[in-house]
Nucleic acid binder design. Structure first.
Lengths: 127, 127
DNA sequence: CATCCTTTACGAAAAGTTTCGTAGTTCCCC
DNA sequence: GGGGAACTACGAAACTTTTCGTAAAGGATG
């Protein structure tokens, strides 16, 4: 069962690794983590254990090296965090957030096309 | 001088109040805060003092009741938080974030138009 | 089977955030 | 000018998050 509480920044880093690389051992997660920042093995282990208690991850204990995987959906968390940001920093104005995001980024042609399609679709439904 | 560090959730709540209502006394901030959640007066005071030390807010001590105002720009914080979210939860794909935001919201006709204009402008610059 | 390596478990320190009690100051008003 | 109300300052408690040291268990190997 997915959790409805916002993961911390560190937890999110780990979730990102699990979403991207699928089920992984502590060792694997730690190595990925260390590509970005120095992190002790037991630190990573402890994080995963805590996340396990919070039901943020599941684990398979069949092997000696437990295998962890994300217990929550990436889309759900994206929505959760986006909604929160929208509310706390953008006073609920999604359009404003979108304008900011587009302004500060450099979307590819394909991405632009996708966004336009979505806009057209929204307008069509509106009629 | 603006800060480059992410404000905490509580700090953001207070900043929001200051951005919206302009320079305010502790009392005023506390009252606004209490519309949302019970918060002791000294708690709010302490938060503002801490934020002052972090240079998140400025204060005018001329009057007996100090008057606080945001020392950082709303746009800057929006950008900071958005960039962070983009990186940590959306793997850097702004288009993906935008699609999520548009999908979960209900933008007005005017907002849709503004977004489209920005898209067109981006495409024009691209050429 | 003694030793080494990998791994888990656990407690606790370190760091950061939030809340609040208490004390002291200033100002007002009777 | 004494007492109370409105404030500020400050320290410390309560929590949460992050990091890591140490112990112990499991497995592999000479």
């Amino acid at each position: 069962m997915a959790k409805k509480q916002k993961p911390t920044d560190s937890e999110l880093e780990i979730l990102q690794i699990l979403w991207e690389g699928g089920a992984s051992t502590v060792k694997a997660v730690n190595e990925k983590l260390n590509e970005k920042k120095e992190t002790g093995y037991t630190t990573t282990l402890k994080m995963l254990q805590i996340m396990f208690e919070k039901n943020l991850v599941e684990r398979n204990e069949n092997e000696r090296s437990h295998v962890y995987k994300a217990a929550i959906n990436k889309d759900d968390i994206q929505k959760l965090l986006l909604d929160k940001l929208l509310e706390t920093a953008f006073s609920g104005s999604a359009a404003n957030l979108v304008l900011h995001a587009l302004g500060n980024s450099n979307p590819s042609k394909e991405e632009l096309t996708k966004i336009k399609e979505l806009l057209n679709q929204i307008e069509k439904e509106r009629k």
